[in-house]
Design a protein around this nucleic acid. Structure first.
Lengths: 333, 333
DNA sequence: CAGCAAATTGAAAACGTTTTCACCTAAATC
DNA sequence: GATTTAGGTGAAAACGTTTTCAATTTGCTG
């Protein structure tokens, strides 16, 4: 007894109808007489027939599978998006092939190509540094692509984000209004547009509005890890920063713990605001104030958008911006 | 111009060879003359031919895709396993279809069936309560299945875990040796064998060795969430517990923060040990002492095991136990 | 240089569906 | 009751590969 030996043909024979008819009842096609529908259904039940999705995919050119490219599921930010994606994918009868890219351009290209060879019906991409080579690969395919929590400066692809510029600007303004003259900006790689072009822009705008000159000594480009954060305290002190706007929660947690370990009191001596509002913000002490993002929803909306694209439905706005908020907790005064 | 219109047939024609030969070079079959191999390769390059994995799957009955059933990727424990799985899957040229089950029996069955209909070559299952119905579904298929971080009491399926009984026993013994007479056991659902049969057993054994009678008032069955943990302080105090062995890191973090918020000092007034050693343990203050588990490796080894099963290679031991450790941090004396 | 084994190729049959037509029936129209 | 019309149905052709088997070529052996 092999894997799955009962085919549509067996059902057809047993029910004395054609394969076409079996296919119709399996697919809920209306044009089949109730009596024969029942007959076929009974045989399907009796034989325990399960349609082979691969054969179906070949014949119909639809796999009901979408590819999801994510830097690292182990990062709670992305895990939350992924969960939102999977939930609405399931809702629409799709499955997701999940791949970790480590934000590595070469891996991203490889993974994209294997996803395409597997004939996924659509792709959701997360990752913020889109190299020219990757962009070229994107352009080669007709398969719909949407970005989740990732910007597209060239305004080609559908994407869902929050307004990073405005959010950072607002938070940095608050920091300045509270008397901080030297606010550090601690971020992931500046090559990533989300940091280098958007968040940094918000930071600069806030400074400008407040009449504070931009000082690049206050900008700390990191690799977004907790560990790196824990090591940053001396450098931050060295430039006399009294607050930091941080672009990643784990990184921010690292900074905060580094401060505490060096007996710098948060928020009294140093204020910290983070950006992703993962559950980490609540678990850490003091709890971290954060820009709030609807993480799950970003994924969910991205997937919903993708279903529209896959079904050739019109989408009114390619650049969807979900509302953000500002959550004051205990790492700010 | 559609999705991907260049087929193996086009390549064959252009290179004036048969489809069979093209198939051979694509699959690296040795039996093809170097000259014609080069000719074919050139045409492939020129036409930018990409094999259609779906057609390939239908013809070969191998999809190079495995299904992964996980309670929730958003939980760092499972995210880490998933990462390990994906990395070795990639290494062996497999992709993973990732599905969240919320540990819901019905969802697990649905998801299993759609994975099977998609003809995955293997399945990795995470989740600890295996209902009879689910077990029946498992039995219906010849597709190899391995459990990751999940026990199989019936000893049917390959699985990779740590020795939960021994680990818990050891840690609880330490707690007792340090003078704690009343050690609470705070766990997820006891229906889950990993809690109800393994960890609880370790807890009981430790008590017994120390000559302490088992008191079920000290056993707290929860839903494994952070939030629930934060609410547990009063109940724990009410039964005069002075320490707790906790089965989930987020849950433990909740308990610890709940204690701190109620001015119960950890570890001086209350000791806490957790079980999964996710990076959360280091981020929280005080840092949590934990049983250490090689999370990534559990996933990686499970996937490696699955490749063996899929290739019909012999596996020496179906029940693989990876080494655990005990990491003292700051939540214990 | 005949004879045979090994290496290289191609034709065609799977693989298990969906989908396009054409055909047939039974109901509806006049 | 002849003529449409629409609903049901089946035959067979896709879909793009792999794989089997036989045919052809090539290379050796003596």
């Amino acid at each position: 007894m092999d894997k799955q030996t009962i085919t549509i043909y067996d059902v057809a024979r047993e029910a004395s109808v054609s394969m076409a008819t079996v296919s119709r009842v399996v697919n809920g096609n209306a044009n089949v007489k109730p009596a024969t529908r029942k007959k076929v259904l009974d045989v399907i039940e009796k034989l325990d027939y399960r349609p082979n999705a691969v054969a179906r995919g070949l014949a119909s050119k639809k796999t009901t599978t979408v590819g999801v490219i994510v830097p690292d599921v182990t990062n709670m930010y992305f895990a939350s998006l992924a969960r939102g994606i999977d939930d609405v994918a399931t809702m629409y009868k799709y499955n997701i092939i999940l791949t970790n890219s480590d934000s590595n351009g070469e891996k991203e290209i490889n993974v994209l190509n294997t996803l395409l060879s597997k004939q996924v019906d659509g792709i959701i991409f997360m990752g913020n540094e889109i190299t020219d080579k990757l962009r070229d690969e994107f352009k080669r395919t007709k398969t719909p692509i949407v970005f989740a929590g990732s910007v597209d400066e060239e305004n080609i692809y559908a994407r869902v984000n929050i307004d990073y510029v405005a959010a950072v600007q607002e938070e940095v303004k608050n920091l300045i209004d509270r008397g901080n003259k030297r606010v550090a900006f601690v971020c992931g790689p500046l090559e990533q547009a989300i940091n280098g072009k958007y968040r940094l822009k918000g930071y600069k705008q806030a400074l400008k509005s407040a009449g504070i000159p931009y000082d690049d000594k206050l900008v700390f480009e990191t690799d977004d890890t907790y560990k790196t954060g824990t090591l940053l305290q001396p450098a931050l002190m060295a430039v006399n920063a009294t607050a930091a706007m941080v672009t990643d929660d784990e990184l921010a947690a690292g900074i905060m713990n580094g401060m505490s370990d060096a007996d710098v009191k948060v928020p009294d001596d140093f204020e910290i605001i983070t950006s992703n509002d993962t559950k980490l913000t609540e678990m850490v002490r003091p709890k971290m104030s954060s820009i709030t993002q609807p993480l799950y929803d970003i994924g969910a909306v991205a997937m919903r958008l993708l279903t529209k694209l896959m079904h050739n439905e019109p989408v009114d706005e390619k650049n969807v911006l979900l509302p953000y908020g500002l959550m004051k907790r205990e790492s700010t005064k």
